Amino acid sequence: MKALINIDYTFDFVATEGLLTTAEAGQKLHDDILALTRHFVDAGDYVVFAIDGHDPNDRYHPENKLFPAHNVMGTKGRNLYGDLAKYYSEHQHDPIIYWIDKRHYSAFSGTDLDIRLRERNIKEIHLVGVCTDICVLHTAIDAYNLGYEIVIHEKGVASFDPIGHEWALKHFKNVLGAKIV
């Protein structure tokens, strides 16, 4: 069994009017991410939605000083983008689909993701979502440090920083030993 981890593919990060949007770069991923999600579910593999959830009034959270308010708990900004939202709502009770509210860049930081993957004897994780050079990168680094095999779907990741995006793709391959597909 393997896992697909969808990181922050939400309205705020992808929609043109999102509060911290990758805009067109993120929107181009839609069909590939949706198809990949369907493929993993149909194969009976584990699918995780690791989604930022913030409180702009939390004065202790460092991200509130670095970025404008985004993915605020209880707002449409946290909704999955496009048809992925409908797909999730239709399949959210399937035991192979899991939603994680995350507070930090990495899907592993402060969550039970590692425990859930190990319970299922998952050793290979596939990463998609945004931003390539922030949340996807930090998740990949933690996965590497925890001993997972990492697969990055190049048509499934994007950033609002094209240079950071390209740098992260090289880093995944050359430093983390990730397979880029």
Rank of each mutant, 00 (worst) to 15 (best):
Y144P: 03
N174G: 01
V130W: 02
G164K: 06
A158M: 02
T132C: 07
I152T: 08
G156I: 06
C135F: 02
E154N: 06
K173H: 14
V130G: 00
A140F: 04
F172H: 08
G156Q: 09
I134W: 09
D133T: 11
W167N: 13
E166Y: 01
D161S: 12
S159E: 12
H138I: 00
F172L: 05
I152S: 09
L169R: 05
L146T: 06
D133L: 05
G147K: 08
A140T: 11
K173F: 01
V151M: 01
L137N: 15
P162E: 13
K170M: 04
L176T: 06
E166A: 14
A140K: 00
E149I: 03
T139L: 00
I152G: 10
E149W: 00
D133M: 03
T139W: 03
V175W: 00
L169I: 12
V151N: 13
L137H: 15
P162T: 09
K173R: 15
H171Q: 12
I150G: 09
I163E: 15
I134Q: 07
K170L: 03
L176A: 11
H171C: 10
S159R: 07
V175P: 02
K173P: 00
T139D: 09
L137I: 05
S159C: 11
F172I: 04
L176K: 05
W167I: 10
C135M: 02
W167Y: 15
V136T: 12
T139V: 04
S159A: 12
C135S: 15
Y148W: 07
L137A: 14
H171G: 01
D161C: 02
I134K: 04
I150T: 09
K155G: 03
D133K: 05
L169D: 05
I141R: 13
